[in-house]
């Protein structure tokens, strides 16, 4: 039985991050809307960030938090480029599902 005074250990945080990552994977595999697929990729990135911060505290090392900073910047750049591609594709097509984007030609 878990008592309420129990402090959550690093294992709990890591398992929560693993569950979040699995949910993000499921979303990328199941959804058909590229915007929602992008959101699921953000979920996976956040799961990895949570693992990094947890291990930074567990191993008493600031480098884990530094990596999270860079991951956030790269995620922002990735979202900007991805949404730009989606916008330029949507100029020419009415429907937006990934099944319609089977060829690279715009």
């Amino acid at each position: 039985m878990i008592s309420l005074s129990l402090a959550p250990t690093a294992t709990w945080y890591l398992i929560l991050a693993a569950v979040l990552f699995a949910i993000g994977t499921l979303g990328v595999l199941v959804r058909r809307n590229p915007l929602v697929m992008f959101m699921c990729i953000e979920l996976m990135l956040n799961a990895v960030n949570l693992s990094f911060v947890t291990l930074a505290r567990e191993l008493n090392d600031i480098n884990g938090q530094t990596i999270v900073f860079f991951v956030m910047v790269v995620a922002a750049a990735e979202v900007v480029v991805g949404l730009g591609i989606i916008v330029s594709i949507m100029r020419n097509r009415a429907v937006l599902t990934t099944d319609d984007l089977a060829e690279l030609k715009g």
Binding site: L55, A56, E58, L59, N60, D61, I62
Partner: peptide, 12 residues
């Protein structure tokens, strides 16, 4: 891997 990673960094 619980408890395996126990190298200590320079500190937070």
């Amino acid at each position: 891997g619980n408890g395996v990673l126990n190298e200590r960094g320079s500190g937070i």
